[in-house]
Design a protein around this nucleic acid. Structure first.
Lengths: 329, 329
DNA sequence: CTGAAAGCGCTAACAA
DNA sequence: TTGTTAGCGCTTTCAG
């Protein structure tokens, strides 16, 4: 592959002039520009990002940290980030951390190493301490999950309010025994959604029963099934379930079906996220829709602004309750 | 962030010596090494990949081209690639092409630009001509989808045999009216799976009926639903359906349920890929399991070998028929 | 065992 | 308008 030197020779100009043509610098005569351009053509030349990046000390690469690409929740967000990034001439590096600190470190080092210009973190299990340290030196944005009262800008939804809306919907349908399948409450979003759940119950004078609250380890289908298996063993069985993730709700639905109970007749079910699968289950799943694409594109824009040195403010986006078959009637 | 120069000064040695310590070069006295290491500690120094990569003319970044991250089929493959890559001190750049030539070009340029060391292509809609051209100059591996008779090494399964096994399973259950929901036959895997379908029918003396074959545009749920909607309009309705992707099968299942027909009693259903959701449907889906993780790790290893300049041979991995509820009885 | 120096490919300040 | 040149941070000869 040719380098800038060879292009300069072939065009009979200096490397500086070639560089000027490459960067659309105006101070190049049309004639010279033409010569250079045809030399570039002939040699099939592509500028080396490595040289350029070293010189400019930027990589135009954005790191996106997610716990797992297998969670469909992230896909739309990533599309949003990606479109924004490409539009601004950045590329994204999708980093699956598996919530594993070693992996995390690899990616954190990439930004120290100048291999990336900024980070969008979506991993709720991220090492907060390290992230805050890093954010003091490098552009970092949090998406979906964030630090309360921290200085790292974030984009998210109002999790408490969203959970409140979900549970209030169940209350309005007349349910009084409403269970919560929550994830680990070490995560902020889990605590917030629980708060929304409790608020909706209290508001209607319903008791908060610990036995109707189950915390899962992860967000896989199996975690939801396991949670539901527990709830179905209870003497006083709940008539409605709010799961803080569609994946959990789908696992729960599977378990309810296996028990020959019917949704929504025996148990009504609400999920969270509106992943594409949630419309493929039988019955289809009532769920909370997050503006995922917009969350992604907003986070992308915020990060790029941060990289440019601008100050950015955190953003809270709207959610929406999508009522489908699993709570009909 | 400190650079190698500052570390050298602080340690009272030359940059060359610091570089030697960084690269575990043996010809450094323990005493000097210690001095350098403590200087590195004190300055919180991390070597710049940009400088290193420019010098070594490598980026240690692997491009992984997929049409869409929202297709769960790819997730396990990517895990396999990723683990292999990280183990070999490479990182992967996940590139969603949306089967869009412009996006594709961005990523193809990255390898020309020296921003990536190699490519694993999983996009069936990739521009074959360009890929072949590129493969002449750069390390490229194809995963899952490939070029017949081309010189680009690939890792895949025997698609024809896998489809044959799926359909033979239906034949053995006594089905004689077996429909095929295939994707666009411009894709090699689609042609191969159709061949397997036809082989299984012919072997049993069953007719191949064009009316029972439906080709979809894409692999989304809706495409499957649409295909099934068509099949259900037929006067002579099939009693079994083989869909070449779980996503299509799940869409078809949805449609069958909506028509108040029952799976497998009225219509038996077989998918392909064994995505995790295929075990969450009601009934659970009989499907073909591909060794996705292994495909990924194999492709990763092949690519790294290619980058090292070794010759690599294409690999065909085993598949497996996973019988579940959608074909029971 | 260590240091000096060249150079990877590029951009930008300065000169002409 | 164009060329010369320094230098981004690193590795690797070559000398010592």
């Amino acid at each position: 592959m040719a380098n800038i030197q060879q292009v300069a020779e072939k065009a009979g100009v200096s490397v500086a002039t070639v560089s000027r043509v490459l960067n659309n610098n105006t101070t190049v005569s049309p004639k010279t520009r033409l010569k250079v351009e045809s030399a570039i053509q002939e040699l099939n030349y592509e500028p080396s990002m490595l040289g350029r990046n070293l010189r400019n000390s930027e990589s135009r690469l954005l790191l996106v940290l997610i716990p797992s690409i297998s969670n469909p929740f992230y896909t739309e967000i990533i599309n949003g980030i990606q479109d924004t990034a490409i539009g601004q001439n950045y590329n994204i590096l999708l980093c699956e951390t598996d919530s594993n600190p070693d992996r995390e470190n690899i990616y954190f080092n990439m930004i120290r190493n100048k291999l990336a210009d900024g980070i969008i973190s979506m991993d709720p299990a991220v090492n907060k301490q390290k992230l805050i340290e890093l954010a003091a030196q490098y552009p970092i944005i949090q998406c979906s999950e964030y630090e309360e009262g921290g200085e790292i800008p974030y984009v998210t939804i109002d999790n408490e309010m969203a959970a409140y809306h979900a549970v209030r919907h169940l209350v309005k349908l007349g349910h009084e025994k409403i269970a919560l399948i929550n994830s680990d409450e070490k995560f902020l979003y889990a605590r917030q959604r629980r708060a929304g759940y409790e608020k909706a119950l209290q508001e209607s004078g319903l008791m908060i029963e610990e036995k109707w609250i189950y915390n899962t380890q992860q967000l896989e289908f199996d975690d939801g099934s396991q949670a539901m298996r527990y709830l179905l063993t209870l003497e006083e069985r709940p008539t409605a379930v709010f799961a803080v993730s569609d994946t959990l709700a789908i696992g729960a639905l599977k378990q309810i079906n296996a028990s020959k109970l019917r949704v929504p007749e025996d148990i009504a079910l609400v999920g969270f996220d509106k992943i594409s699968f949630s419309n493929m289950t039988n019955p289809t799943l009532t769920t909370i829709s997050q503006p995922m694409y917009k969350m992604g594109s907003t986070a992308g824009m915020m990060l790029i602004n941060r990289i440019k040195g601008n100050k950015v403010d955190s953003v809270i986006l709207d959610h929406e309750l999508v009522i489908r078959e699993s709570t009909l009637g």
